[in-house]
Nucleic acid binder design. Sequence first.
DNA 1: AATACAATTAACAATTAAGTTAATTGTTAA
DNA 2: TTAACAATTAACTTAATTGTTAATTGTATT
Lengths: 91, 91
Amino acid sequence: MGLQNTLRALADPIRREILSLLKAGPLTAGDICRHFTVTAAAVSRHLAVLREADLIRDRREGKFIYYELNTSVLEEIMFWITELKGDGDDA
Amino acid sequence: MGLQNTLRALADPIRREILSLLKAGPLTAGDICRHFTVTAAAVSRHLAVLREADLIRDRREGKFIYYELNTSVLEEIMFWITELKGDGDDA
DNA sequence: AATACAATTAACAATTAAGTTAATTGTTAA
DNA sequence: TTAACAATTAACTTAATTGTTAATTGTATT
């Protein structure tokens, strides 16, 4: 389910932009919301999809929930693509 | 539309498997169909999505249409991921 | 306890995606 | 031209995704 979840999560422009925002460092859900025109509920669901894909981690701090990037699962995509390109073995 | 199309195309297991099949070399639509349980029409639509994403190229040869892999658009994903991981500039 | 605030979850509407069968387009060969 | 075959496109159904508003959960403050 790893690669499938990861690619599905990345196949949405809002979710990719959320990841890009988190590149600079952790942000609260509210911080993230302010960058988009969609509602907080919509952003929250996008965050849930990213969390299920393990592309982000969350931790509560008081009444805020901080989200931060986790890029480790991207290795799997890199590997899959590299293999497809034939740099793997039987090229 | 490049990255969006590419990621959307990759976010389906059948389409990824089609690409993997084509890694070994060009195949006809019929050849590809034989590897799946879904109908030829369904495979044909998957091929159309992959073609729109420019992940495959097609050429007709007699009554067969051959499909072959085009991995060049994958560079864009590699770049995007690399940048996200911070190997880009301001890490 | 009551209020306020951050964020998520629930319930629903609208859009998009994926699958099916049936019809159509190309191409070859009788 | 007609028949046969490869493959796509059309029409339709169903399932999944995305968005909205309203209700709920969790935490801090008064």
